[in-house]
Design a protein around this nucleic acid. Structure first.
Lengths: 165, 165
DNA sequence: TTGATTGTTCAGAAAGGACTGAATGATCAT
DNA sequence: ATGATCATTCAGTCCTTTCTGAACAATCAA
């Protein structure tokens, strides 16, 4: 493994912890990003020195984030994987996933709480929570507008123009 | 502690884990959000049943995120805390902090790596990393444009209009 | 100075997540 | 059907993070 490839993989792995994904997932993602050709599970295990179990789970998870894709090679029984080639799509997919996993449950929980009939509706607490719910709902609509868009890179170009970044 | 207050605190606490902040911090944040008057460390410990050490650290951390503020009450030696009252400001502050803690180090590491003279510059790896660096830099500029703005709620209103959300 | 009050730090205990490797499942060729 | 190949699952182990509580620091009143 050449030097820069290894350095990038370990760096990305350490950063993955900050990103809320674990080290293995981040290292595998980095490795696949840098491969010209599709890679199989066995290769991931051997090159990154991780167990088959871990690699299998991590690949599944990376796929659910939409940052890698499974491809079939003709004449091969094994599964092969490639990274999402469009960087903008990748960033948007990560953002969309994180919103879905982190923000949406919070909004949902808040709405459930406010929807209950059994709560003391005279309380100032309820007013404060209602206010928070409204703000979060608006944020949600705004986020959907951007993240739901398939043409990730085009929308960015639009924004760059509109806001003169 | 009335029912809805308690439920909200525990819900927010569980969600905090998803958000990458820990349960104590999230519970304390929820508690302070729902208090009409400034609260002191002792009250936090007693009402939420957590240790002084934990409360002290968590309050410090919440303050560094900018989602609570320290206030001084006349004639009181103790420190008191209030939540950021503007929900939009709160959301923007969280987003800005997370970008700073999670995205910026990744971009920095990538730039450091590419800046090193000792790397094999003929490699396709370098080209792929360069491409990624350009995309992330653009994203960075775009994010700064929004998150750096003090008038969080106004910018949201602008966007709602422009994008007809 | 002494004691009272309040805030911070940190070593160790407790809790929570990640990783391994063996067992199991699935699919294919013969 | 059998063996070969590859993927997945999960119980147990290992490692990291969080939390506690006691020690320490800082500040004030008397």
């Amino acid at each position: 493994m050449e030097k820069e490839r290894g350095q990038f993989i370990e760096t990305w792995g350490s950063l993955g912890v900050l990103w809320g994904i674990n080290r293995s997932m981040a290292r595998i993602h980095a490795f696949i990003m840098l491969c010209e050709d599709p890679v199989d599970l066995e290769t991931v295990c051997r090159r990154l020195r991780i167990s088959r179990g871990n690699a299998s789970m991590s690949l599944k998870e990376l796929r659910s984030w939409g940052v890698i894709h499974r491809v079939h090679m003709s004449g091969e029984r094994r599964d092969f994987y490639v990274a999402e080639p469009d960087n903008w799509k990748m960033i948007f997919k990560i953002a969309a996933q994180r919103k879905e996993r982190e923000f949406d449950p919070a909004l949902q929980a808040l709405q459930d709480l406010l929807g209950r009939a059994d709560l003391d509706s005279s309380s100032g607490v309820r007013a404060r929570l209602g206010e928070l719910e409204r703000t979060m709902t608006t944020f949600d609509r705004l986020a959907r507008k951007f993240l739901g868009n398939e043409q990730a890179s085009r929308i960015v170009v639009d924004m760059l123009k509109k806001f003169k970044v």
